[in-house]
Design a protein around this nucleic acid. Sequence first.
RNA 1: GCCUGCGUGGUGGAAUUGGUAGACACGUUGGACUCAAAAUCCAAUGGUACUUGUACCGUGCCGGUUCAAGUCCGGCCGCAGGCACCA
Length: 930
Amino acid sequence: MYDFKKIEEKWRNYWQENNTFYTDVWDFSKPKFYALDMFPYPSGVGLHAGHPEGYTATDIVSRMKRMQGYNVLHPMGYDSFGLPAEQYAVTTGNHPNGFTEDNIKIFTNQLKLLGFDYDWSKEVRTSDPKFYKWTQWIFKKLYEDGYAKYIDMPVNWCEELGTVLSNDEVIDGKSERGGYPVIRKNMKQWVIDQAAFAEKLLEGLEEIDWPESTKEMQKNWIGKSIGAGVTFKIKDTNKEFKVFTTRADTLFGATYCVMSPEHELVDSITSKDKKEEVAAYKKECAKKSDLERTELNKDKTGVFIGAYAINPVNNDEIPIYISDYVLATYGTGAIMAVPAHDDRDYEFAVKFNIPIIQVLEEEIGTAKESEEKNKAIVAIVYDPKEKKYLTIKTKNNENVLIDEIREENESALNCALRSIIEKTGYTDLKLIEEKFKISYHYQYNKKNYHSEVTPVLFELQSEKRKDSNKENNIEWLSLEETQKQLKDELHIKSLEYILNPNAMSGDGTHINSEFLNDMKKQEAIDTMISWLEEKGVGSRQINYRIREWIFARQRYWGEPMPIVYLENGDIHVLDDDELPLTLPELEDYKGHGGKAPLENANDWKQYNHNGIKGVRETSTMPGSAGSSWYFLRYIDPHNDKEFADQKLLKHWLPVDLYIGGPEHAVGHLLYSRIWNRYLYDKGLSPVKEPFKKLVHQGMILGSNGIKMGKRYPEFVINPTDIVNEYGADTLRLYEMFMGPLEASKPWSDQGVEGASKFLDRIYRLYTSGKIKTEENKNLSKIYNQTVKKVTEDFETLNFNTAISQMMIFINAVYKEEVFPQEYAEGFVKLLNPVAPHITEELWEKLGHHKTIAFEPWPTYDESLLVEAEKEIAVQVNGKVRATIMINVNDEEDVIKEKALQEENILRHTAGKEIIKVIVIKGKIVNIVAK
RNA sequence: GCCUGCGUGGUGGAAUUGGUAGACACGUUGGACUCAAAAUCCAAUGGUACUUGUACCGUGCCGGUUCAAGUCCGGCCGCAGGCACCA
């Protein structure tokens, strides 16, 4: 085994002493490449197995780009504000800075052991005042431009952590860290208005090369919905309220309204006799934490408040309810409810016995000219004892449900009963429900009909029958059998309606809707909105789900807010020359009674500047503040005049490749886009989108296939152990060879062995004396193929297949006596990005005295990739029966002839007629024979 | 429930744009070297059958398009991640 310890240490020192990877950011003579890793939080436990994966990927690309002549920026730093350091401070009474620095040292040493080409002179730390000065400065700008605000709002409050949390820090009503319960509470809060950027953020997604799933997540998070605001007057008052709806077309089906319990009008419009009930319900809701609200959402609750709204389209008086299924924080906090066409409203209406008016009919078949109209039913009879459905067997041996055309003035119910008795004889039936009508177009005896069909459900009460000679054609089937047997679309749809306790929320044709009748959904929406605008009772409106980003935490270890509350009640933001506002040392780092720890800093809190007195804000910024812009600072990390020089930003942005875990899909990656977009709008960032290409590395699982973690400590892999046992090159090679970068994949100790063996094999080959300054034609094709494949695969981040190609090449070289110097050098360059230490050593052994890092990337000769002769497959009826050697220039008929002469082909075509011979040049021959 | 992605040997995974499924690696088996072992090198390795060359089967399941489907289309099943009363 080669002495990886000695070699790796030698080259680690070489790179450090020679400043090999220092990037001169002012050198604009070469094209730039900015490769970025998501910087880690320096926790006490050091790197885990997943870190080297993403970091090696960017390292490979940045090393290749450097060799291809780019000026590469590949920096690293630390997201060093955070909870573990805070807890350390609370328990020991020491300032968290020392703890943080110790951890950073451990991290840095581990990262250096792995041989990454980071330019450490560019390192940033979010907890460094020189860095957070500019975090505060950007916040200040956001405040001055009205994007950062101090408002009263409901927040996610976590009692155990003693702080407010943002939505993405709350999972299932529990805190992301620690899993403590989170409740809603009204508090005065510093927030950033994210919704103001919603449209720009959505537009930006169009132009970036990101995983589709991440873009989709951000889209959902932003949650744009286009609809209408509609004003409802309240009966017997001069008050009115507005609702938001995406289904303005269903206004004629609105049979009640719902306000959230927190709606400002509720108290003033509740009727006297309902006051008590309403107050009780409101109290109940206020008590509920978010957890309870989501856990109990199965069952709808609410109360009628005794007031009525006037539906603006038909002046109908409809009752107003309050219910916690309407959220105070979305839209206007009030809705119009259309139970026929909204699942939630349907559930509520059924429970509270509110009328359901259908205003759209689903369409089966297509409308034809001169249709005759009629009404009909589909009757479904269910036997609850046997759990079976009644069907009729037709002459064609098909099972159908009972259908019937209604006579004039006959109700659906009567028609259904009549038909069941006539066709089956059963008489003891109980009506369960009539479901939504279906618009059915059909042809019968060459005439076109348009039928309005009502599905009706009955339960069989007893076996009583009027007439039993129908015995032969009826059949009781289980639900599964019924669904399998039914062929008629109308019957299938009718059964589906009856089975599902849902509203009809799809598209259809309008009914019961005056001027909207016969229109489809979208046309009706547009028509209705125009109508509302004309009458002045509504307008087109867009809503976003994205809320304010709560930008303050009641914690110590974060950026202090540059905010002072003055004696006169004004808010003062610190002047530029007062920044950075640094954290004071404290006696006591614990917040008491939900107060921020900085409340304990009595001297620091008091503000007195040029005779102006006030008290400082004691909350600090959230963890994601610094990480929202750190990638800008790397470009010019020591600048104390501005957050980065504009000329440098212009040259280096956007980030060309950003790799990090998918867990940041909506948090960090959205916040960063917001901050950058804000700076772009102000002319302080040159690009709309900061990260041109984003890739998420998959998780590395334990060898048991389960996520590494505290649950199965025996399966946790520490990368430093692997480096000690096998070397950094082996670890890097193995992690890149495991599988596709984005996939989650289990660790395998034997896989590591394999990677180690491959490097050994290479080392032996290079020290075997086979390398000669001679040619070896046997290797020219495979060498050129390898250069091409590796280059392309590195570019597209398919490292596993690049490595497999390198293995194929080495296997081929082992079979040869002569390994030409030229190829040996080229191969070392190809391998260098993956295994930088051993390749530097081999490069030296090949007679070079300078680092390989800037050597030109190997090129390949396209003409050497194609061979004169090629083996292709010959198929008979799609099955491979032989392979033949062909000349690349062979004409089709030559190939055809060759194929037809093959012994095995003759055997398979014997006695058959050859119908067609398909020859795909250079690929395959397929003979169709019968 | 909705959105996104994924289902290929004993294992991790390859497979161009529809054109010889299983590259490469691990594991296993056999051989060489060795007093022996390790390491290394060589060979075999999807399943079944026999005569060792060939046949049949084979990319979650069912169906379709095509000369040809892991790949495209329709319908299921399963797994992973995300969202979840957003009107």
